[in-house]
Design a protein around this nucleic acid. Structure first.
Lengths: 146, 146
DNA sequence: GTAAGAATGAGAACTACTATCATTATATAT
DNA sequence: ATATATAATGATAGTAGTTCTCATTCTTAC
């Protein structure tokens, strides 16, 4: 999705919730859009510039999470990373490097995704659990570490 | 796996690594064995008794992680939970309740597990990533919350 | 242009976790 | 069995990531 139509979608969502789409918030959304995986507050601090204080980034992320523009991801010890919500980016999964900890997004072709969904349904059904979503993380060594 | 054979396996592993299998460590292993999902240090503090200080629990968990008796799980904001390693319990996945945050283990029948593995291979292959493991978390509402 | 409300920045406070160190327990050698 | 060396524990101080507070600045509506 190009940045301007993303921006329009986010703008509309925030306006619906009576929340302003300010410069600081735009910067965070843009940084997450350029990233190729979830980012932590500290990583965003490095990317959007150190002039934006960490406390503001945390608050911005909290606001964007409440309005469902971003989603938290808890894949690493002690740190919360954020990525744009799937209604903005499309459904995807993660490749997690067990050596360096980087997380990269991976898009799954529709037929595989459908197969995953069917399996999830079957597995959950056996436990009388009604699944609303699934998270698949593939662990291994990334190309940089291998 | 019954507790005594689990205990024997852990004992052997720790002895191999020249680490003692003490009373405190046994208590943690037993608590994790009885649990039906990963537990945090604070939750263990409640379960094994408040007479075991948190600092000891954190260190015990670190030792058990180094010796690969337990595995960390980062499914919740800011907290690390631990569960017995899969060589002790068998491979399994998680049902995560989006309402209350509880995580329950779920065993997956072999044919479904095989299908998951095949899909993971295919998805990863498309990104030139060689998978060593996978984590599948199924989100939904647990029976208590529904 | 002004008033009301929202967002920001700076820093204090909180929580999960880690490190330190003195004390206690365990294992090995004699 | 006792002494000695090494490991584990408990208490507490310290750290990192995150959240809260509040005074100031910016927006929006009138």
């Amino acid at each position: 999705m190009p940045i301007h139509s993303l921006d329009r979608d986010v703008e509309e969502r925030l306006s619906d919730r009576d929340v302003r789409y300010t410069r600081g918030r735009r910067r965070v959304v843009a940084a997450l859009h350029e990233a190729d995986g979830p980012m932590s507050a500290a990583e965003l601090h490095g990317k959007v510039g150190a002039d934006v204080p960490l406390s503001s980034l945390y608050r911005t992320l909290a606001v964007l999470e409440e309005t469902e523009v971003v989603m938290p991801h808890f894949g690493a010890r002690g740190i919360t990373r954020y990525e744009l919500a799937e209604w903005l980016t499309g459904h995807h999964h993660h490749l997690v490097c067990v050596d360096c900890g980087t997380v990269d997004d991976i898009n799954v072709p529709p037929q595989h995704e459908a197969a995953v969904r069917v399996l999830v349904e079957k597995i959950a059904a056996a436990a009388a659990f009604s699944p609303s979503a699934h998270v698949l993380e593939i662990e291994g060594s990334c190309s940089r570490c291998r």
